[in-house]
């Protein structure tokens, strides 16, 4: 560089992305331990697809390929896509989802840093709308790896042996039968100590990774706290009002993708809000929408929709929550 500063902190986009990948490892380990190693196969398929798609896009756009692939952002997107999909979806579904994320959502908008929407969440939404049946089959906890692999490779789906209902699904369908209460439904096999049977430990793994991200300063506290408070708080209020019809806050936070969302999805810097107050509003909005969809929507979980809906609000949130500038008494943004 010709101009000052002549010194720089030894950081890079690659390091940031790499640390997030490392932070995902506890969650992935818990996932593989609880639901079998199929997830590892899916992560591999997704990663390869993402790298190839990224390289192809950069080649078509006549941009340096090595720099873009080397920044690890495509791999991170691939991992988040794979972790959002059920681990036993056929390989072509994973590949399609990653292609949507990398080519349509990221590269068509101009590549890294330019996409207004969270690539992994658009991919998830596309797949759940296009293939609702496949997207609702989650691996059973004790499913064998051979059977899982068969499914990934596109084998006949003899579902009962390898898939199991998630707790959110069980709760949704269970509460629709007359006379059912949260308590009666929760006695079912899908429910664990405080969340979804087995998946609650995956959630703990994600939370541990999230604490690592907080400690390394990759993310700030605003988003996870706001998301958890909004989802848990809303759930708590209604749970206190009518515990027969509404699940506890702890259940909501430990089920589905809540912890993955709190630390890895809503915290996506590119498509999220950037100001401190904007971050709080953004993540709280996602948390609220998640609770609404889980309780009153057509899908068992609502993280992807919540994130995308809030992505739309980001320019407005950022504009209206500009922090106060040094020496200026009032906040800078707002109604200028």
């Amino acid at each position: 560089m010709i101009h000052s500063p002549y010194v720089r902190k030894p950081v890079s986009v690659q390091r940031t992305m790499g640390l997030v990948l490392i932070a995902l490892l506890p969650g992935i380990a818990a996932y593989a331990w609880q639901a079998g190693p199929a997830i590892l196969v899916n992560l591999l398929i997704a990663s390869l697809t993402a790298v190839l798609a990224e390289a192809l896009a950069m080649w078509l756009r006549r941009r340096p390929i090595g720099l873009a692939v080397g920044d690890l952002s495509a791999v991170l997107t691939a991992w988040l896509v794979a972790l959002s999909l059920p681990a036993i979806v056929p390989w072509w579904l994973t590949v399609s989802a990653v292609l949507v994320a990398i080519l349509a959502v990221k590269q068509l908008y101009g590549g890294l840093g330019q996409n207004p929407f969270n690539p992994a969440m658009v991919a998830y939404c596309t797949m759940i709308v296009a293939f609702p049946a496949l997207m609702s089959q989650w691996p059973a906890l004790a499913g064998g790896f051979d059977a899982q692999l068969q499914l990934i490779l596109g084998g006949a789906r003899e579902l009962d042996a390898v898939t199991g209902a998630t707790a959110l699904d069980a709760l949704r369908t269970g509460l629709r039968t007359a006379g059912a209460t949260v308590e009666s439904v929760s006695a079912g096999p899908a429910f664990g100590v405080f969340g979804s049977q087995g998946w609650e430990w995956v959630a703990v793994g994600y939370a541990l990774g999230g604490l690592f991200l907080l400690a390394t300063g990759i993310i700030t506290w605003h988003m996870p706290v706001a998301f958890i408070v909004a989802l848990g708080g809303t759930a708590g209020v209604f749970w206190l009002i009518d515990p027969a019809q509404f699940a506890s806050p702890l259940f909501h936070l430990a089920s589905g993708g809540a912890m993955l969302a709190a630390f890895f999805i809503v915290t996506d810097p590119v498509s999220g809000a950037t100001t401190p107050r904007g971050k709080l509003l953004f993540a709280a909005g996602v948390g609220l929408i998640v609770w609404l969809i889980r309780n009153f929507g057509a899908y068992p979980d609502g993280i992807a929709f919540g994130v995308l809906l809030m992505n739309i609000c980001v320019p407005l949130l950022d504009m209206k929550t500009q922090p106060r500038v040094f020496g200026h008494r009032e906040a800078a943004g707002g109604d200028q």
Partner: peptide, 8 residues
Amino acid sequence: QPCIRCTE
């Protein structure tokens, strides 16, 4: 590299 709006 591209800005990723990390707000550092």
